[in-house]
């Protein structure tokens, strides 16, 4: 996967490049719009990360001119601004995504994966999910572990489904709030932790190896091996 990162702040640029390379991306880095256009012309990229506040030009006009140049790869827009520009909303509807600074690396990676998945033709939705000895029947909304049915509330099932779909990858609290409850909020109480705690009580029974792991300061992960 080849990725073009357009970010002018050196510190953030370095951090992102390291993390993205660690995650397996081949990263090209540009510090301004002119350089970005040059790189985009030289080689094709699977995905782009563009910061809105570039020194020479606005990030959105860069995206639009790249589109005119024939670059069709999805874009993840980074912004330190408070209000979401209408033009960003337009791009969001066009299939691109938007992330506000500061963000968790896990969330950035999850959004990149989503954008790439959107861009590849869909391979028929599975009706069952398997993670180790955990099995989810998406049609009957039933979960079993080692053949034993788990007594989950509908909400808990949705939460577990989200963790299963991201098995082996870190999900943050704000990602859970966004995807499971459809809320982009930052509660200053531990509401998500309590949900996970309850779910873990049902999924990881006595004597079974724990599946749901807490990565403190980062989020949660459902172990896939």
């Amino acid at each position: 996967m080849r990725l073009l990162l357009v970010e002018d702040e050196l510190e953030i640029q370095t951090l992102l490049r390291n993390s993205l390379q660690e995650a397996g991306y081949e990263v090209d880095v540009a510090g301004d719009a002119r350089h970005a256009e040059q790189l985009a012309m030289e080689s094709a990229h699977d995905i782009l990360i563009v910061d809105l506040g570039l020194p020479d030009r606005d990030g959105i006009s860069l995206i639009l001119s790249l589109r005119e140049m024939g670059v069709s790869a999805p874009v993840l827009i980074l912004s330190a601004r408070r209000s979401v520009d209408d033009r960003v909303k337009g791009l969001e509807q066009g299939g691109d995504d938007y992330l506000t600074k500061p963000f968790a690396m896990a969330e950035l990676l999850a959004r990149l994966r989503n954008l790439l998945k959107r861009n590849t033709p869909a391979t028929g939705e599975p009706t069952r999910l398997h993670v180790q000895d955990l099995e989810l029947d998406l049609l009957r909304r039933e979960a079993t572990r080692s053949g034993q049915t788990l007594q989950l509330t509908p909400q808990e099932f949705v939460l577990l489904e989200y963790l299963c779909r991201n098995a082996g990858r870190v999900v943050t609290r704000s990602m859970i709030l966004d995807k499971v409850w459809g809320m982009r909020i930052q509660p200053d109480t531990n509401v998500v932790d309590v949900h996970i705690y309850r779910l873990r009580g049902k999924v990881d029974g006595k004597g079974q190896p724990p599946l749901i792991r807490t990565l403190r300061g980062v989020g949660y992960v459902l172990k896939d091996r």
Binding site: I12, L15, N18, A80, K101, P102, F103, M105, G217, V218
Partner: peptide
């Protein structure tokens, strides 16, 4: 007011992003 609050948000968020990234790296 909007220019001021936006500038303040922008100027604070960039370093916050860098700090958060570094913290995650060290974690």
């Amino acid at each position: 007011l909007h220019t001021m609050t936006d500038a303040l948000a922008h100027d604070l968020r960039s370093p916050l992003t860098a700090i958060r990234g570094k913290l995650e790296m060290s974690l």
